[in-house]
Amino acid sequence: MANEVLKKGGEVASEVLGETRSFDFEGMRFGVKVWRASASDARAHGTSTVPIVLVHGFAQQASTWDDTARLLADAGARCFGFELAGHGAGACSAGGDPAERPDFFDLCFQARALLAFCRVVARDAGVAPVLVGYSMGGRVALRAACLAADDLRGGDQLNRTALRSSAAIAPRGRDRRLDAIAALILESAGLGPVDDAAREALRERNFAWAARVRGEGVSAFMNWWAGLPLFESQRNLANDQQKRLRVGRLANDAESLALSFERAGAHVMPPKQETIRALCELSRRGIPVNYLAGELDAKYCKVLADLRAESQGAISCRIVPAAGHNVHLEQPEAFGAILEEVVESCTPEPAAP
């Protein structure tokens, strides 16, 4: 059972700008960072907007959202950075040793924890949050949305029959089973393997990477990781941004990173076609889905193009100019503007006097 009060003595409504807390779920402690407008900014805006839950990528922490979250907080939004297993402030278990409970790193376990956290945010805010996931965090956010759609009863495999049933997914506002998520935004996120051969290739790659980080250590592995073509555009970031990015990557332990590859990699996702069907059904039933990719990221622009074609307009797909794989880091203002637009579309109209 999820702990419905964030640690440190207060509920979600009592958070302050930039404070780090934690969220307990079935023995796992997840780190949470919170940004909100100052009291004067909140009074100036005078409205209650939909909260935003942000999920970072591999080897990152919630602080990767700082620039975007502060822009959104200045506009009156409350943002929550949810840290994945073994990342940031979260401990893997009571003893903090990831090897004690490798199941905490399972994609489905983390998705269930994220969904439970979204429900706490929704309860305390009085409105469901917009859920945003980047890269690996996008996989977890996607899985959480599918679990919500499956009425939390489908187990580890997506129940496609339930997804097609109006009893399992009803328009938001009429079925409280989907009140945990107001909208889903996926940033540079994979959608799953296209077939068994692709799944096996991804599994072999991820296990090889896990062996590499265990064998070489975090520093050497991250030197290699940062040099991947996927992150080429990040070499154009300001020196202080590149330094913070590296410091964040080095703040991880090898076993946690290895388990993330093995137990939450793309090879454990449902098939791509099943994922796209689920996303389309979410959109059709009142949960808007947005997919974002940077124009300099050829790999995920191709994912976006395939999703746009196969969803036949059911999913909003946007390419962000002058950005690579990490859109929110490379173009925080453009990314924030898109989030503001989604939040505004999800914000309930004020009650009539």
Rank of each mutant, 00 (worst) to 15 (best):
G155F: 04
T47M: 13
A162Q: 13
A208C: 06
D150N: 08
R70W: 06
T68F: 13
K8R: 13
P348E: 01
G57I: 03
M222W: 10
R235E: 07
E281L: 14
A189T: 06
K302G: 08
G133V: 03
E310T: 08
P332F: 15
L152S: 11
A309H: 09
L304H: 01
A2H: 11
A42S: 04
A211Q: 15
A251D: 10
A309Y: 04
E330V: 00
P332E: 09
G46L: 08
P229Q: 15
A314Y: 12
L257R: 01
R263L: 11
D306T: 14
A170W: 02
A168C: 03
R29F: 00
S283I: 06
A293H: 06
G133D: 02
E349W: 13
T275W: 12
T47N: 08
A334Q: 08
P51M: 02
G215W: 13
A323I: 05
R199D: 08
D195K: 11
S135H: 07
L71C: 04
Q157H: 10
D179E: 03
R235D: 14
T68P: 00
A73Q: 00
T20E: 12
W225N: 02
I338C: 06
D240G: 09
L237M: 05
L184M: 12
R143C: 02
E274N: 09
M1T: 09
R199K: 11
C301Q: 14
R212E: 11
A352M: 15
P353L: 11
L307S: 10
S219E: 11
G46F: 14
G10N: 14
C346S: 04
D297P: 05
A91G: 08
S260I: 01
Q234M: 13
R246S: 10
P229V: 09
L17E: 14
G217R: 09
L202F: 05
H87I: 01
R249S: 01
P350E: 04
V218L: 04
H56Q: 07
A116V: 02
L147A: 07
D179H: 03
S260E: 01
C146Y: 11
F80V: 01
R139L: 09
E187D: 09
E4C: 11
G248K: 08
L259K: 00
R143D: 03
L282R: 04
V327D: 03
D306K: 10
S233G: 05
L329N: 07
E330W: 14
H87T: 01
E340W: 02
Q242L: 15
R139K: 12
W225T: 04
A128R: 02
T64W: 03
V194C: 01
W224N: 09
K302H: 12
C118S: 01
D156T: 11
V140T: 07
G227A: 13
A198N: 07
G46S: 04
R284K: 15
R284I: 13
T347Y: 07
A149T: 00
